[in-house]
Amino acid sequence: MGTKQENSTVLERETQKLKPPPMYKVILLNDDYTPMEFVVAIVQEYFNKDREAAMQIMLKVHRDGKGICGVYPKDIAQTKVELVLTHARRAGHPLQCVMEEV
């Protein structure tokens, strides 16, 4: 007597609750002006990478035009993008940092 419909509504709600939040890639974009060493320092400072990993990301940005620094929930990704952009501007560099949904 209507229990089938009630059960499907409950299952839909549970599925929506259990769905993980969307994740976002934080990406650095290449330019012809930002020094490579500055990019390495940014990656180490804001993405907690060791020097070797930061160098690999910097080289990927340099060779491929962009490189992923990490994948985070939306609010953390937004904060990291803002921090990187603010740091780069204060240092006088045009480094671009963006986020894309995974």
Rank of each mutant, 00 (worst) to 15 (best):
G2H: 03
E6T: 11
N7D: 15
S8A: 12
T9Q: 15
T9L: 08
V10H: 03
L11K: 13
E12I: 10
E12C: 11
E12Q: 14
E12R: 15
R13Y: 11
R13G: 12
E14L: 14
Q16F: 05
K17E: 15
L18Q: 13
K19R: 11
P20C: 11
P20I: 14
P21T: 15
Y24V: 14
Y24D: 12
K25E: 09
K25M: 00
K25T: 03
V26F: 15
V26T: 05
I27T: 07
I27G: 05
L28Q: 02
L29S: 09
L29W: 02
L29F: 03
L29V: 00
N30G: 01
D32C: 03
D32G: 02
Y33D: 08
Y33A: 09
T34V: 10
E37K: 14
E37Y: 05
E37A: 10
F38D: 07
V39S: 10
V40M: 06
A41F: 00
I42F: 12
I42N: 02
I42G: 09
V43F: 05
V43G: 07
Q44L: 09
Q44G: 11
Q44P: 00
E45Q: 00
Y46A: 07
F47H: 14
K49C: 13
K49V: 03
D50V: 07
A54R: 03
A54M: 01
M55K: 13
Q56W: 01
M58P: 00
M58Q: 11
M58N: 00
L59E: 15
L59H: 11
K60V: 00
V61P: 04
H62Q: 02
H62D: 04
R63M: 01
R63F: 02
D64Y: 09
D64W: 02
G65N: 06
G65E: 10
K66W: 04
G67I: 11
I68D: 11
I68Y: 09
C69M: 01
C69Q: 08
C69F: 12
G70M: 04
P73F: 07
P73H: 09
K74C: 03
I76G: 01
I76M: 13
A77P: 04
A77S: 12
T79Y: 00
K80L: 09
V81S: 06
V81E: 04
V81R: 12
E82Q: 06
L83Y: 07
L83D: 05
L83E: 10
V84K: 08
T86A: 12
T86F: 15
T86R: 08
A88Q: 07
A88V: 05
R89Y: 01
R90E: 11
L95S: 03
Q96I: 04
Q96K: 02
Q96V: 10
C97M: 05
V98F: 00
M99R: 02
E100N: 03
E100D: 04
E101Y: 06
V102Q: 10
V102K: 10
V102I: 09
V102D: 09
V102E: 11
V102H: 06
